[in-house]
Design a protein around this nucleic acid. Structure first.
Lengths: 198, 198
DNA sequence: TACGGTAGTTCAACCGTGATGAATTCTTCG
DNA sequence: CGAAGAATTCATCACGGTTGAACTACCGTA
């Protein structure tokens, strides 16, 4: 039954968010008494955390991003992020996760740890140099800003810009964060315009 | 009594957050029956919204930022933001506001509207040019990222960087967002290093 | 085969939450 | 004074997560 509860919970959490899903209704959905959830997961939050650990494993996406050439990381990162968050199947769970983390310090700690370990530290290693960690932090912070304003708050115009437009407006800034304001040796696509468009 | 309730609520919300403050305890604090809160504000959320409107008026800060010269806006914006959010008296209420907005769509709408009207639109006007609105959106998004990662999640290293360090690492990126990757005509402090430091 | 223990599962109840509607007091003004 | 209406309280509701006791099912062992 444990697995059933977990599966049902995953589905409903991602669809309806944390607060909207009640333990009783969840139990009913899984054909089980509500107390059983507490028995297995300790609390509603425990259940949610279990669902998170099950769902939240985009570490491999990150890895593949860092394997590519550093010069194009900004565009690739933006594209991957937007792709992941725009698709409801993957975006909704991420969104509810972040929402919950914003409200619950314990979950925030979980998310924070993940971000530091899987993103900041790795990127800093890859970057190297004196203030690598600072630059990596700023990079992650800027991507976090995208999540925050575009997906969590849906502030215009960011909320309805296309991936290309975001790459065009935010890409250069990310590049500056990684490599500094000075243009590197010309690489040929210095302007990093997205694929053909007006 | 309305004013008393509002005052007590403001204090406790900023200190303990939205969920932790219960209507009964709040009523007791204000020397009033809990039902009176509903009578005046309709609901707990209504009360919170009232508190928000009372508290959240940093529109003037924004205005003064936009009045200064555009070239130095990035540094000044970062400094103002960090100053406001680092001081507990002003930072805590902002934080609980954002937290609540992350959880509650209605409050998110409120915040979103404010950000668009008071920040994006104004900045876009000041910037001018073809994609002014896009650049303004990205600018606000990057500042939002600072709020999100440094204050909401407290991701390192951003969480413990000094204002100077943030200006150094994030400033150039913001400048790129506003003016593009090409350096403008030399202004004398091209590197925008913060005040004397290592 | 009977026994005992342990994991799985349900049941009933607890307590705290926000909300509501009727009942009461307090003001105010004709 | 005496209504009218606002302000305030009281009692109560429905619903949330959680808990402890009870019941069941299984599995190894004497």
């Amino acid at each position: 039954m444990r697995a059933t509860i977990l599966a049902v919970a995953r589905d409903r959490f991602r669809r309806e968010g944390y607060e909207a899903v009640t333990m009783r209704s969840l139990a009913a959905d899984a054909g089980v008494d509500a107390a059983l959830i507490s028995y297995y997961f300790g609390s509603k939050r425990g259940l949610f955390a279990a669902v998170l650990e099950l769902t939240l494993n985009p570490a491999d996406v990150l890895a593949s991003l860092l394997e590519g050439e550093l010069e194009s990381l900004p565009q690739r990162a933006i594209r991957a992020l937007v792709a992941g968050w725009d698709r409801p199947e993957t975006g909704l769970p991420l969104l509810t996760a972040v929402r919950a983390a914003a409200a619950d310090p314990a979950l925030a700690t979980l998310l924070r740890g993940g971000l530091q370990r899987e993103m900041v530290d790795r990127l800093a290693d890859r970057l190297g140099g004196a203030d690598a960690r600072h630059r990596a932090g700023a990079f992650v912070g800027q991507l976090g800003g995208l999540v925050f304003t575009r997906y969590l708050l849906a502030v215009e115009p960011l909320a309805s810009m296309t991936a290309d437009e975001i790459v065009r407006t935010l890409g250069p800034a990310l590049r500056t964060t990684l490599f500094g304001p000075v243009r590197r040796a010309a690489t040929g696509n210095d302007h990093a315009r997205g694929p053909a468009s007006a």
